[in-house]
Design a protein around this nucleic acid. Sequence first.
DNA 1: GAAATAATATACCTATTGGTATAGCATACG
DNA 2: CGTATGCTATACCAATAGGTATATTATTTC
Lengths: 188, 188
Amino acid sequence: MGNKEDILSVATRLFAAKGYDVVGIQEIVDQAGISKPTMYHYFGSKNGLLVAIMETNFRSLLLELSPAAVYSGDLPATLTSIVKAYFRFALRNPEFYRLHLAFWFSPPSSDGFCAAKEWWEKQQQLLEMLFMLAANNHGNMKNRQRIYAATFLGTINTFIAFFLNGYAELDDNACHSLVRQFSHGIYS
Amino acid sequence: MGNKEDILSVATRLFAAKGYDVVGIQEIVDQAGISKPTMYHYFGSKNGLLVAIMETNFRSLLLELSPAAVYSGDLPATLTSIVKAYFRFALRNPEFYRLHLAFWFSPPSSDGFCAAKEWWEKQQQLLEMLFMLAANNHGNMKNRQRIYAATFLGTINTFIAFFLNGYAELDDNACHSLVRQFSHGIYS
DNA sequence: GAAATAATATACCTATTGGTATAGCATACG
DNA sequence: CGTATGCTATACCAATAGGTATATTATTTC
């Protein structure tokens, strides 16, 4: 397509494969078949390129996630549809998922963390809201939305990382056991 | 004390605060009050320095973890002592914990991932062994050691990351709710 | 005491980094 | 037709990267 899209896709692939900091602009523009000023024309800086990657992909994730996270009154069913949305997205954008996961635990002052932070917060809010609504039906989970949202997302990401490293599949089976483990623990 | 220990501690702090790739050797040796050849004398390369950091700290973690992970016949009790060991270690070495967490989801070809990989595998083995032994008493968890070990460690790391970012405490309360959630889910 | 070895510093290397000044070419617009 | 704007390339910049050649000092060993 256009040069802009080429740059985004090449950069996502290289950042995911080698790490944001070790990939130089030169390598990106070479593989995209363009020259530096073109990249700087569209994105302004290396960090601007990263921010654009985050925006593009996270917007798409949230678009898919929002309807899936509407509380229907049946929490396990809602959790299942959320996990499915995450799995679908990760299967469709494995490189981006790997990239943003790498930023998840990186230094809060780093470019990657800063570029992804606002988008993680949106996911966190979405999940917190869900657990808060569900708390009306499940008294024992009151005031635990924060930690539930965090550990639920943590578990999802652990599964996806497992998949990205070739140790598991992201199928309905995995989805089901994830939700069951989160809901009822390993003793169920 | 010695220059060697100074280098290790300064490098750990800087790597954790800014990221391995963006910290230059010059910055490390400056802050350690020495010069480049001294660092290269002890560690051979930047990567060698990283490997040494991993070795020193992970050795200490495993030393603390091994006795805690011995299966006593009471799985929740064993899980609790494991979580406590992780919490203690993370409280004592927050910078190293942050550093190795940053490598957890980074590209498998990156220096950080490679330097930490063997040590993660040791933790994974330790936990898998535990869940395998426990499966004798809990039939429903047979052949699930892999995923249980992974998600248990994932949950622990999610909690610790929560703490490192200032959102939670790593006290007995947190430990208890982590183990309970992992064992019985959010519905218990 | 001499010789070897470990530890340290000054000064330097080449390659690459993110970024830009300048200019050319295209298309759209008046 | 002429001008303005968007897009692209060549060639360049200063700064920094990881790493080292050489020399000096401190320590150990014989």
